[in-house]
Deep mutational scan, measured.
Amino acid sequence: MLYVKVKTEDGEELVLEVEGMTEDEIREELAKAGFKIEEIEVYEVEP
Score class of each variant (00 low, 15 high):
residue 28 E to D: 07
residue 45 V to P: 08
residue 44 E to Y: 13
residue 33 A to R: 15
residue 47 P to N: 09
residue 13 E to V: 14
residue 36 K to M: 10
residue 46 E to S: 10
residue 10 D to H: 09
residue 16 L to I: 09
residue 37 I to G: 05
residue 25 E to W: 03
residue 9 E to A: 13
residue 8 T to L: 15
residue 15 V to K: 03
residue 47 P to C: 09
residue 25 E to A: 07
residue 15 V to E: 04
residue 1 M to Q: 09
residue 18 V to C: 11
residue 2 L to E: 02
residue 5 K to W: 13
residue 17 E to D: 04
residue 3 Y to A: 05
residue 38 E to T: 15
residue 10 D to F: 06
residue 34 G to C: 06
residue 44 E to W: 15
residue 18 V to A: 03
residue 38 E to Q: 13
residue 39 E to V: 13
residue 38 E to C: 07
residue 14 L to K: 04
residue 19 E to H: 14
residue 44 E to Q: 09
residue 27 R to H: 04
residue 12 E to C: 15
residue 45 V to R: 14
residue 43 Y to D: 02
residue 45 V to Q: 10
residue 21 M to C: 13
residue 14 L to D: 01
residue 1 M to K: 15
residue 46 E to P: 13
residue 29 E to Q: 10
residue 20 G to R: 08
residue 15 V to Q: 04
residue 45 V to H: 12
residue 47 P to R: 02
residue 33 A to L: 15
residue 3 Y to H: 09
residue 9 E to G: 10
residue 16 L to D: 00
residue 32 K to E: 05
residue 47 P to V: 07
residue 6 V to W: 05
residue 38 E to I: 15
residue 18 V to H: 01
residue 28 E to F: 10
residue 11 G to K: 01
residue 7 K to D: 02
residue 3 Y to P: 01
residue 24 D to I: 08
residue 28 E to S: 09
residue 9 E to K: 15
residue 31 A to H: 09
residue 31 A to P: 01
residue 29 E to C: 15
residue 32 K to A: 09
residue 30 L to A: 02
residue 19 E to D: 10
residue 41 E to S: 10
residue 26 I to Q: 01
residue 40 I to G: 02
residue 36 K to I: 08
residue 15 V to G: 02
residue 1 M to R: 14
residue 10 D to I: 05
residue 34 G to N: 03
residue 11 G to R: 01
residue 40 I to W: 06
residue 8 T to Q: 05
residue 45 V to E: 08
residue 2 L to I: 09
residue 32 K to W: 04
residue 9 E to D: 08
residue 42 V to R: 05
residue 33 A to Y: 15
residue 15 V to C: 15
residue 34 G to A: 01
residue 12 E to K: 15
residue 30 L to H: 00
residue 41 E to Q: 09
residue 31 A to W: 06
residue 25 E to H: 03
residue 14 L to S: 02
residue 9 E to R: 11
residue 35 F to W: 11
residue 39 E to K: 11
residue 47 P to L: 10
residue 28 E to A: 13
residue 1 M to F: 11
residue 9 E to M: 11
residue 47 P to S: 09
residue 3 Y to G: 03
residue 12 E to G: 11
residue 5 K to S: 04
residue 39 E to R: 08
residue 17 E to M: 15
residue 23 E to I: 15
residue 1 M to Y: 13
residue 35 F to Q: 01
residue 45 V to T: 10
residue 25 E to D: 06
residue 29 E to G: 05
residue 1 M to S: 10
residue 28 E to V: 09
residue 13 E to D: 06
residue 13 E to I: 14
residue 13 E to R: 04
residue 23 E to M: 15
residue 24 D to E: 12
residue 11 G to D: 03
residue 1 M to I: 13
residue 19 E to R: 10
residue 21 M to T: 09
residue 5 K to F: 07
residue 20 G to M: 07
residue 45 V to S: 11
residue 38 E to G: 10
residue 17 E to S: 10
residue 17 E to C: 12
residue 20 G to P: 04
residue 31 A to V: 13
residue 28 E to G: 06
residue 31 A to R: 12
residue 36 K to C: 08
residue 30 L to P: 00
residue 16 L to E: 00
residue 26 I to T: 01
residue 27 R to S: 02
residue 15 V to I: 14
residue 31 A to T: 10
residue 32 K to F: 05
residue 41 E to P: 02
residue 5 K to E: 02
residue 34 G to F: 02
residue 30 L to Q: 00
residue 8 T to G: 10
residue 14 L to H: 06
residue 13 E to Y: 15
residue 46 E to Q: 12
residue 4 V to F: 04
residue 43 Y to H: 06
residue 24 D to R: 11
residue 9 E to H: 09
residue 6 V to P: 00
residue 7 K to M: 07
residue 42 V to L: 09
residue 28 E to R: 11
residue 6 V to S: 00
residue 26 I to C: 04
residue 25 E to I: 04
residue 24 D to M: 10
residue 22 T to Y: 03
residue 5 K to A: 03
residue 19 E to Y: 14
residue 33 A to F: 13
residue 3 Y to Q: 05
residue 11 G to I: 01
residue 17 E to K: 14
residue 8 T to K: 07
residue 32 K to S: 06
residue 18 V to W: 08
residue 8 T to H: 03
residue 22 T to V: 02
residue 6 V to Y: 07
